[in-house]
């Protein structure tokens, strides 16, 4: 497979754009991840029959 500057540009640009968005909405992103993590955690702790 050919890998050169012209094929890397779209991939690198997409990564850069995603990083830009992530930095812009960093706190919301962290908040959403935390929320999701705690929801998952809660769900697993609720379904654990041993507890």
């Amino acid at each position: 497979m050919y890998i050169g500057p012209d094929t890397v540009v779209p991939f690198a640009s997409a990564l850069a754009a995603i990083a830009g968005f992530a930095l812009m909405f960093w706190r919301r992103l962290v908040g959403a991840v935390r929320l999701a993590a705690s929801a998952v955690k809660r769900r697993f702790s609720n379904t654990d029959p041993e507890r």
Partner: peptide
Amino acid sequence: QRFHLIARALLSLGIAIQ
């Protein structure tokens, strides 16, 4: 030049906000 202009603008804004 390896990033598209829009990608560069978004990255700049993200870094600037932080």
